[in-house]
Amino acid sequence: MSLNSLDIAKPPAETRVVVAMSGGVDSSVTAALLAEAGYDVVGITLQLYDGGAGPRRAGACCAGQDIHDARRVAEALGIDHYVLDYEERFRQAVIDPFADSYLAGETPIPCVACNQTVKFRDLLATAEDLGADALATGHYIETRRRGAHRAMYRPRDLDRDQSYFLYGTTQTQLDFLRFPLGTMTKDETRKVAERFGLSVAAKPDSQDICFVSKGKYFDVIRKLRPEAGEPGDIVDLNGRRLGRHEGIVNFTIGQRRGLGVAAGAPLYVVALDAATATVTVGPREALLTRRIRLRDLNWLGERSPETHAGEDGDLFVKVRSTRPPAPARIVTASGGSVEVELVLGEDGIAPGQACVFYDGMEAGAEVLGGGIIAESLSAGRTMAQEPVVATV
């Protein structure tokens, strides 16, 4: 039997696809396109947290309104729809590690953890229990069959590329997942939503951490971890005390504003030491990083990272979601730990962020995998500087 449009050897009507419906336009269009193609579509929306009453921050997502929107879309499409209570799973797998990571002086990415655990582990298992042949989402990423498995590639619309948040997908998960929007632009997606008459066609995109719907990140962290407000010193690169702070969770690498100290030249956060609650500040040039060490590596490429080590080839990395891939080299790789040389250098790299590998910069470039930045190995953050004259 020939493969259907999802690369599954069944007629669409006999192919059950679970769609993760967040209540936004992307997942709604995903469900609509699959239903239109004749697939047996089941929509599932996850109740991840209680957003509480009152106004939300601009850009915040999820909670009750989004569940309502997903339900309305499912009704309009005539597909089954279920809401699953995943609050406890979400707390254990995403929110608690997020708070602990900040306490450790890192800048975590909860969306990566959510995709790795709640969505592509727990929801995928639920989809299998429902007899699904695939789990589809509204992410802008493309996958294609390569031999017996599927490989991941940057989407057509690079402005919407979500590969930075999906690098942690395992090969087994990738083989089961489908991303119908990978060959579409966002404008095209909204036009499709309008064609179907979906109520969410003009709904704004969510652009922030879903469980921080009100206030600021450190307010959430302090509520979860009261010890997050432990005070400490703000020092220069020589260890000279410039002032005091009320918790390192209030700071991230590269931060300039809100330091609580003033000097003759701009100062930036260049290091956070959770053990001593110390915030180190310095000039902008101290932020330049040329080598990093990764942990928790997830590799999807055909060739292992060890075979790339020492090569000067077409290898690129993203160390921030908003930056394009830049040239890099794998220096060493062993036991899930990798050291990466950033050929052009990068400013403001923070432990806890992701480093994602590609075989090119363009649309269609393969996503080779990635890992969490454990450490910056640059000398610039520890080299002695002329003392900074500062006032609190």
Rank of each mutant, 00 (worst) to 15 (best):
R190V: 01
P204S: 07
L224H: 09
S206C: 05
K216E: 14
R195L: 00
E227M: 14
K216P: 03
A193Y: 01
T169K: 09
V200F: 00
I234D: 04
F179V: 15
V212K: 04
Y217P: 05
E188Q: 07
V212R: 02
V192Y: 01
K223N: 15
G232T: 07
L174F: 08
R178N: 14
G232K: 01
V192C: 03
M184A: 11
K223V: 15
I221H: 05
D187Q: 03
D208K: 08
D205S: 06
A202V: 01
G215S: 06
G182L: 03
V220A: 08
M184S: 07
A201L: 00
F179I: 10
S199A: 08
T169Q: 08
D187N: 07
G229R: 15
P231S: 10
P204G: 04
K191Q: 00
Q171F: 10
G215Y: 05
T170K: 12
Q173C: 07
S199G: 04
G229F: 15
K186R: 05
P231I: 14
E227R: 14
G197A: 08
G215A: 06
R222S: 06
P204H: 04
S213W: 13
E227T: 14
K214P: 07
T189M: 01
D175N: 14
D236I: 02
L174Y: 07
I221E: 04
P226N: 13
S199C: 03
D208V: 02
A202H: 08
P226C: 15
Q207N: 02
I234W: 03
R195H: 01
A228Q: 08
L198F: 03
T169S: 13
Q173T: 10
T170M: 14
D175Q: 13
G197S: 04
S213F: 13
R178H: 12
S206I: 05
P231L: 08
L181P: 04
R178M: 14
D236M: 09
A193I: 07
E194R: 08
T172L: 12
D175M: 11
G232L: 01
D205A: 06
V200D: 01
P226L: 14
F218T: 15
G197E: 11
V220K: 05
R225V: 12
E230T: 14
P226K: 11
A202D: 06
I209M: 04
S206W: 09
D175S: 06
E188D: 11
F176G: 10
S213R: 10
V235P: 09
S213Y: 12
K223D: 15
K216Q: 11
A202Y: 01
G229E: 14
D219N: 06
R222C: 10
G197H: 06
K203I: 12
P231K: 08
F218M: 15
